[in-house]
C-alpha cells in the first residue's frame, strides 16, 4: 500500500472477474492517453531531469557532472533571490486566488439577472491578450497619475508606492494582477463542481432545519473538496511555474525584485547555455512541488469528501 493511496472506491459487486480482466479493462481506458503522454512528454522530461547531473551547452558532447550543479546552486545568488521571490508569490497568490474564485462562483451560481454576462466578463482577463492585461494593470497602478495613487493621495497618503517601478512593491503588484487574471479561470471549475452537488442533500438539510451558513459549511464546502483539492494543487504548481505574466509586467525587475525560478531557469539555459544547470534548478522546483503535492494528497485523505 503506497503512502499516496487515495480513498479506495467501493468494492465491486461482481467479484468473480479475474484480476487480469480487471487490469486489462483499466489499462484499456488509460493506454490511449498514456502512450502519447509517455513518448511526447514523460521521456523528454525524464531526459531533462537526468541532465541535472550533466553538463551540456546544447551543442557539444554531454559530460557527467555529478552533484556539481547542485553545489553550484548554493553559491548562486540569483537562485536564492528567485527562490525567495517564487515562494513569496506562491504564498500570496494561492490563498488569494482560491478565496476570490470560490466567492465569485458562489455569487454567480445564484439565479441572478445577467448571470451569463457576468460569468463571461469574469473569465475575460484570462483570455485577453497578456499585453493588454499588463498595460491595464500597470496603468491602474501608474506611479504619478494612476487612478490608484490618485485615490491614495486623496486619502492623505503622503508618498504613495511606485508599485511595479519599486523594488518593494513590484511583487505585490504582480500578485494582484495574477489574482485578478486567474480568479475567473478557477471560478469556472468551482461553478462546474457546484452543479455536481445533488439537490437532495439541501432538501434533507432544509427538513432538518439547517440555516444558510450550516448548509454552506456542512454540504457545499465538503462537496466541493475534490474541486478545491484540484484547484489547490494546480494553482500551487502554476504559481511555482509563473513566467509569462511576470515577463510582460516587470521582466523580473526592477533589478531582480520579481525574478522567479522559471525566469532564472530560462536565462540559464538560453542566455548562458548551461542546460545541465538549468535542469538542476528545475529539479529543485520539481522536488518542492512534488513534496507539497504529496502533503496535499495526505490532507486530501483527511478533508476531501468523495461521497
Amino acid at each position: 500500500m503506497s503512502i499516496l493511496s487515495l480513498k479506495p472506491t467501493n468494492t465491486h459487486p461482481s467479484k468473480r472477474r479475474s484480476q487480469f480482466t480487471k487490469l486489462a479493462i483499466a489499462y484499456s481506458f488509460i493506454l490511449p492517453n498514456l502512450i502519447g503522454f509517455l513518448i511526447f512528454t514523460l521521456i523528454p522530461m525524464v531526459f531533462s531531469l537526468i541532465l541535472a547531473f550533466m553538463n551540456w551547452d546544447g551543442a557539444n558532447q554531454i559530460s557527467w557532472a555529478g552533484l556539481e550543479n547542485f553545489s553550484q546552486m548554493l553559491r548562486d545568488e540569483t537562485f536564492r533571490i528567485s527562490l525567495g521571490n517564487t515562494i513569496a508569490f506562491v504564498a500570496l497568490n494561492v490563498p488569494l486566488t482560491m478565496a476570490a474564485s470560490l466567492g465569485l462562483a458562489l455569487l454567480l451560481n445564484q439565479p441572478l439577472r445577467g448571470r451569463n454576462f457576468f460569468r463571461t466578463t469574469f473569465f475575460f482577463p484570462y483570455v485577453a491578450s497578456l499585453v493588454a492585461v499588463a498595460v491595464v494593470w500597470n496603468m491602474l497602478f501608474f506611479p504619478s497619475a494612476g487612478p490608484v495613487n490618485s485615490v491614495l493621495s486623496m486619502l492623505g497618503v503622503q508618498n504613495p508606492p511606485r508599485w511595479s517601478a519599486s523594488v518593494d512593491w513590484a511583487m505585490l503588484t504582480v500578485v494582484m494582477a495574477s489574482v485578478w487574471r486567474g480568479m475567473g479561470y478557477y471560478m469556472i471549475i468551482y461553478l462546474a463542481a457546484l452543479q455536481n452537488i445533488p439537490t437532495i442533500l439541501y432538501e434533507a438539510a432544509a427538513v432538518d432545519g439547517a440555516d444558510t451558513w450550516q448548509k454552506f459549511r456542512y454540504i457545499t464546502l465538503p462537496m466541493l473538496t475534490p474541486a478545491t483539492f484540484f484547484i489547490s494543487v494546480m494553482l500551487t504548481i502554476a504559481s511555482f511555474k509563473v513566467f509569462d505574466l511576470v515577463m510582460v509586467m516587470t521582466g523580473g525587475g526592477p533589478g531582480r525584485a520579481t525574478n522567479v525560478l522559471v525566469i532564472h531557469i530560462f536565462n540559464t539555459a538560453f542566455k548562458e547555455f548551461r542546460f545541465g544547470y538549468a535542469s538542476s534548478i528545475a529539479m529543485v522546483l520539481f522536488v518542492m512541488v512534488i513534496g507539497i503535492t504529496v502533503i496535499q494528497f495526505y490532507m486530501e485523505r483527511r478533508w476531501v469528501n468523495y461521497q
Binding site: V135, N138, P254
Partner: peptide
C-alpha cells in the same frame, strides 16, 4: 521622462 513610468507604461 521618468524611467520607472516609461517602463511601467511600456
Amino acid at each position: 521622462m521618468d524611467y520607472g513610468e516609461l517602463k511601467a507604461g511600456n
